[in-house]
Design a protein around this nucleic acid. Structure first.
Lengths: 190, 190
DNA sequence: GCTTTTGCACTGACCGGTCAGTTCAAAAAG
DNA sequence: CTTTTTGAACTGACCGGTCAGTGCAAAAGC
């Protein structure tokens, strides 16, 4: 089953990247962790870059899917809260992925910067939608740039979630979500 | 002049790490960029790790110095605004350093995680001081955990500043500062 | 039914290049 | 004289990528 092998390689890479990052990761280790031979990686992906590229899309697709599932026509602030919760849950499940994101997203011109920029757009556009709804309701403070705010929001979630995982794993997800929401509520007071 | 050589090596490493990260950096390249011989690196720092360790302290000392210089007995929110501005200016001047910070800080257990955790504490404690002043004035929303909020604040600044440098360099520092402050003002309404 | 062929998925030993780290004699700096 | 720097040669581990070969299930040939 080919899809199964690719999936196994993705999951193995995510497991390892948590501690070593993408650059410090060897194809030998990934293959060993996935329980396949090194050649299999090259058979399936052509190169280490190919594997990483696939992994990035895999991860972002998962996250985007969950973020979109959290959308409803409820109050935009509630939707954002649900999205924050979703993101925290996702990052707790796949700490290696967010690790990669923060390590590589702002590297210029990193190897995967192109792919990552696209993926950043995908996630941010989902957040933007909710901010636009807030704006339409006239609930955004004056002068707030939606693109900047959306990027900031996404980055904040990422960083807070990582900090939670690494420096305060005893906190509950609800506590951390509250911490983020306190910041966000300043955006759209009801 | 030993301090001069070390400084040159720090600055060279920062210049290069912007695009390649710490792991992908070769000692040969660093030495060449600094205009010194490879042997000089080992004479001064003993190893690549020694150089990186020194660099991390060097960078955090610079940032901490500036953050403390921004402290006054003005309104805490104004002090925080000044600190945000200071941080943005610092990151704009040393993009490589914040690059390193986000890439390595939340890696467990990365090579430099120990040193970085200490440095994280140093920066965050400075932010905490201002949040505590807000709390004493009874201006913090109920249930805000100061350590969590401080960590979130620091991370947010870091990420927003990087995103600014990479994806929106045409924005002015004032614009970006405003974007961060909109988030923060939700914390401490006057 | 049986044998042969095909092609996909995978294997793992191997190769060539790269890079951290070492060494050292000699020059420069102070 | 002492400290610092130079620069080049060398070592050895490590790693991305290659490739001839294996296993096997399904199709083709008879």
């Amino acid at each position: 089953m080919s899809g199964g092998t690719k999936q196994k390689l993705f999951e193995a890479t995510l497991r390892l990247s948590k501690s070593r990052g993408l650059v410090g990761l060897t194809v030998d280790d990934i293959a060993a962790e996935a329980g396949v031979a090194k050649g299999t990686v090259y058979y399936n992906f052509g190169s280490k870059d190919g594997l990483v590229d696939g992994l990035l899309r895999y991860g972002v697709d998962m996250l985007a899917l969950r973020l979109r599932a959290a959308v409803s026509d409820a109050d935009p602030l509630d939707v954002i809260e649900a999205q924050v919760d979703t993101t925290l849950e996702f990052i707790a499940s796949y700490p290696g992925f967010s690790q990669i994101l923060v390590s590589e997203l702002w590297r210029t011109p990193g190897q995967w910067h192109g792919t990552l920029s696209l993926l950043r757009e995908e996630i941010i556009s989902i957040v933007k939608t909710q901010l636009s709804r807030l704006e339409e309701a006239g609930r955004l403070p004056e002068g707030v740039q939606i693109p900047t705010a959306a990027a900031g929001l996404f980055g904040t979630m990422l960083v807070v979630a990582l900090d939670w995982q690494v420096f305060g794993p005893q906190r509950t997800r609800a506590e951390v979500r509250e911490a983020v929401m306190v910041l966000i509520r300043g955006l759209g007071r009801r």
